[in-house]
Write a protein that binds this DNA or RNA. Structure first.
Lengths: 247, 247
DNA sequence: CTTTGCTGTCTTGTATGCAAGATAGCCAGA
DNA sequence: TCTGGCTATCTTGCATACAAGACAGCAAAG
């Protein structure tokens, strides 16, 4: 636990580092976030790490198990469904509220879709994950409404965590097509249609999940015993405390 | 600064106390929230107060001016507009996503509207403020989506702060009528219409604001000097430090 | 009377220290 | 071999101590 490379990064950076790590699928659900490790990693005391964790917790991105540790959330199947539903509600409402697509907006989306295409061509899966989520954030940015942007960013982060848990295979091309269709409707000025397409698109992605799968392998037992809910799946829990310290 | 009545309230209570204080219009925008005062009021140390403040800050309800203090936010005119826009987007999307109004839902809304009526009859303005905001939260609860409920609760809190700053008079009867119309459309199963009515309703309320009014009397000077943004309007800033301590 | 600088006291910012729960691994006993 | 309990050591929870900025009020100079 010697001190490390980084230094006086100013407060919000811990938060943003973690969120962007999730958005680009570099941080997996269930990852342990030790206060001490983060503290030495960022060159600050536990206090500031803790503050960042609290903030992330209210954003639904991180979760604390009392006296055991902080973990990146592992959304349950129910939570996954709720996240997709919330996104459908907000994104459809957002698109329907739009009246015009400005030139700048058209160019931004066009550039984004090109990036998607080149990432698909390059087979860069991590970048692709990031771009697929970012498309929706870009649309929110068109509205110029910072509140909506923030909400959708957090929901997108949770969506990516959900994908990492439940998505067996990644239909990037299909998602890209969905994005293109939405863009076309927007260009045509038909925002009602764009909203419908966005809902369909989110439905498609949600259908691509296997929500009976991975996490909480004890769920059957748990529910048959009618125990409260869930903590952290033992899968990602470190087995050996001593090894923890090694980085 | 002696200790006080309250005791081992468990963490989230500080947060919820403040939010519900805002929702019922008992806490005004710009109110100073001293860490020390809250700490002794809740019988905890500053640490936990601070954590609550951080959480409230990420929820957009509280704001810190470095080394000066925590304050309940005083939304600027631009922020006020953004809040209403966000609400229109989300509430319209929410209503449009609904397919049926359950019996339980119908009864809940009906009971709520009756409460509105009796508060109007009684002229209980504080209760009325609470109910007028709560109607929209009730609708969100019908969806059963906790994410949407949380988002709308926070936006409603901000809306109430906005009202306290910019709303000269309170058209309770008009708002109540709007709520009734939305309810009727929902009962008729016409959720598209309900969404339209919700947007109109929010527009109406927003129009009732005088956004050129109250806060940040220095805004003209500030913008002509092109200074960053805003901190706390001097109006609500306490003049005398000594008096602070008295409760 | 106005202005300018000083100083005491308030505030938050941050680190640290100690308490206490939870877990892993060991060891003894069956 | 398996079971049960003990203990060492990890973790977070929470309070406290100290650093440092901001402001109000006063006093002195113009």
């Amino acid at each position: 636990m010697q001190d490390s490379q980084t230094s006086d990064t100013t407060q919000k950076t811990i938060e943003e580092t973690i969120v962007s790590g999730i958005l680009s699928a570099r941080i997996r659900p269930g990852t342990r976030l030790s206060e001490n490790q983060l503290a030495s990693l960022f060159g600050v005391s536990r206090t500031r790490v803790r503050e960042a964790m609290m903030r992330l917790e209210t954003r639904g991105i991180v979760h604390v198990s009392p006296r055991r540790g902080w973990f990146v959330v592992e959304p349950s199947a129910e939570e996954a469904i709720a996240v997709y539903e919330a996104r459908r509600i907000i994104e459809a409402g957002l698109l329907r509220s739009m009246r015009v697509l400005t030139d700048a907006g058209r160019e931004a989306l066009d550039a984004h879709l090109n990036e998607e295409r080149s990432a698909i061509a390059a087979g860069d899966r991590q970048r692709l994950t990031y771009l697929m989520g970012d498309f929706h954030i870009r649309i929110a940015e068109l509205s110029g409404n910072a509140i909506i942007v923030d909400i959708l960013r957090d929901l997108t982060a949770r969506t990516i965590l959900i994908s990492m848990l439940y998505q067996s295979e990644f239909h990037a091309a299909q998602s890209h097509d969905g994005h293109c269709r939405i863009f076309q409707a927007m260009q045509a000025g038909d925002f009602g249609r764009a909203a419908e397409l966005a809902v369909e698109h989110l439905d498609e992605v949600e259908m691509g999940l296997d929500l009976t799968a991975r996490p909480d392998p004890l769920s059957e037992l748990r529910s048959s015993l009618s125990l409260p809910s869930r903590t952290v799946s033992p899968t990602d829990r470190p087995k050996n405390h001593k090894l923890q310290r090694s980085n």
